[in-house]
Simulated scan of single mutants.
Amino acid sequence: MTADDSFGRLDDDYPAYTMGRAAEMLGTTQGFLRAIGEARLITPLRSAGGHRRYSRYQLRIAARARELVDHGTPVEAACRIIILEDQLQEARRINAEHRRATESAS
């Protein structure tokens, strides 16, 4: 197995990135990551030493928040928008499942 193979197998939920690395990857500051954590958009896991660790999934959410903030949306509002977008997506998924179940029952 090559390094490329093992990288592709990393779980999106595995907290692989330190706060510094996450901020660097997103082109933002550690303060921004703390702010979206305080707004409860993402909750990074903590290492044994108490350091924040971020997953790929959390980095995608943080990137979306940064995009909104870069367009002038306050951090708290950006976090709320993303949460509502996520809830809407989940509601649509549930509705689609119900429609499929209803169609297959009839």
Rank of each mutant, 00 (worst) to 15 (best):
D11W: 06
A63H: 05
Y14E: 14
I42E: 02
A62Q: 06
L33H: 02
Q87C: 12
D5R: 10
E76I: 09
S106Y: 15
H98L: 08
D4W: 01
V69G: 13
I83N: 04
G50H: 00
G49W: 07
V75G: 08
D11C: 04
L41W: 03
L26E: 14
A63M: 04
R66C: 05
R9W: 13
R100C: 09
L41G: 10
T29P: 01
M1W: 12
Y57S: 13
R56D: 08
R92A: 08
V69R: 02
T18P: 08
T29Q: 00
D5F: 06
L84S: 15
A77W: 11
I83E: 03
L88Q: 10
Y57Q: 09
M25Y: 09
Y57M: 00
P74I: 00
G50W: 02
D86N: 07
A91T: 03
G31E: 07
T102R: 14
L88K: 03
A105R: 13
G8T: 06
Q87N: 15
Y57A: 10
R99T: 13
R46W: 05
A65G: 06
A62G: 01
T43N: 09
A78M: 05
Q87S: 15
L10V: 07
A39R: 10
G31T: 10
A48G: 05
G49R: 11
S47A: 04
A96R: 14
A48R: 11
G27C: 14
S106M: 15
R52M: 11
E24H: 00
R53C: 09
G27I: 03
E67R: 00
A77H: 05
F32V: 04
R56W: 06
Q87Y: 12
R46V: 13
E24L: 11
A78S: 08
A63P: 01
P15G: 02
T102K: 01
D86Y: 14
A16G: 11
I42G: 05
S6C: 05
R52Y: 14
R40P: 02
A16C: 12
T18A: 13
L59A: 03
P74Y: 10
R40Q: 13
F7G: 12
F7C: 07
Q30V: 05
I81R: 08
A77Q: 12
R46G: 07
A96L: 11
L10K: 08
D86T: 15
N95F: 13
E103P: 00
M1G: 04
D4G: 08
L26Y: 09
L84T: 13
A3P: 07
A96S: 10
S106L: 15
R46A: 15
T2Y: 11
R21E: 14
E76Q: 06
E97N: 09
Q87M: 10
L41R: 05
L41M: 04
A3I: 06
R93W: 15
D11S: 12
R66N: 14
T73R: 05
I83L: 12
I42C: 12
F32H: 07
E97G: 01
Y54F: 00
H71C: 03
D86R: 15
A77M: 04
Y57P: 09
A105E: 05
L59W: 02
Q89N: 15
A22C: 05
I94A: 15
I42V: 06
E24N: 07
T43H: 04
F7S: 11
A96D: 11
R21P: 01
D86C: 06
M25C: 09
I81F: 08
R21M: 07
A62K: 00
E67T: 12
Y54D: 02
T29G: 11
Q58T: 02
R93F: 14
L59S: 03
A22Q: 05
